[in-house]
C-alpha cells in the first residue's frame, strides 16, 4: 500500500460525489513518526485513509479538512509539544510536524 493510495482514494470519492481534502506532511523536526510527503485523504463524511502521524493528530487534521473543504482556502497546521494545543493533540514523541491541508476540487 503506497502513498499514492491516498490520491486514488480522493479520485474515487470525488467520482462518488464526495467533497475531499488532501493533507500532506511538509516539514518535520525531531522524532516525528511520518516523513515529509506523507499523505492523508479526507472526505466530508469524516472518513480518511493514510496518516500524517502515528495517530496523534489525525483527529485535528480531519477537523481542519472540514473547514478547508467548505472554504476552499488551504491551511497550514503546526503540531508539537510547544504548541498551545499540545494537551489536546500534541505529539507524544516530542517531535514537531507541519501539515498542509488543501481541498481537491
Amino acid at each position: 500500500m503506497s502513498e499514492t493510495h491516498a490520491l486514488d482514494q480522493i479520485a474515487a470519492w470525488r467520482a462518488a460525489g464526495r467533497k475531499t481534502a488532501l493533507a500532506t506532511v511538509v516539514q518535520t523536526w525531531g522524532s516525528s513518526p511520518r516523513p515529509a510527503g506523507s499523505h492523508m485523504a479526507i472526505n466530508d463524511r469524516n472518513e480518511f485513509v493514510g496518516s500524517v502521524s502515528g495517530g496523534c493528530i489525525e483527529g485535528a487534521v480531519v477537523e481542519a479538512a472540514r473547514e478547508v473543504m467548505t472554504s476552499g482556502v488551504p491551511k497550514t497546521l503546526d503540531f508539537g509539544v510547544t504548541n498551545e494545543m499540545a494537551w489536546e493533540v500534541g505529539l507524544a514523541c516530542g517531535g514537531k510536524v507541519r501539515v498542509f491541508v488543501e481541498a481537491v476540487e
Binding site: 499514492t4 490520491l7 486514488d8 480522493i10 479520485a11 470525488r14 488532501l22 500532506t24 511538509v26 482556502v73 488551504p74 497550514t76 498542509f100 488543501e102 481541498a103 481537491v104 476540487e105
Partner: peptide
C-alpha cells in the same frame, strides 16, 4: 489542488514516470 492536476499526477504515477508536485503553501 485542482482535480485536473490530480488526474495529471495520477497519469504520471500510472506511467511510472518520476514526477514532483510543487506546492506554494502560502497560496495553494
Amino acid at each position: 489542488m485542482k482535480a485536473r492536476l490530480l488526474s495529471q499526477l495520477q497519469a504520471c504515477i500510472a506511467a511510472k514516470e518520476p514526477v514532483a508536485l510543487v506546492t506554494d503553501t502560502a497560496t495553494g
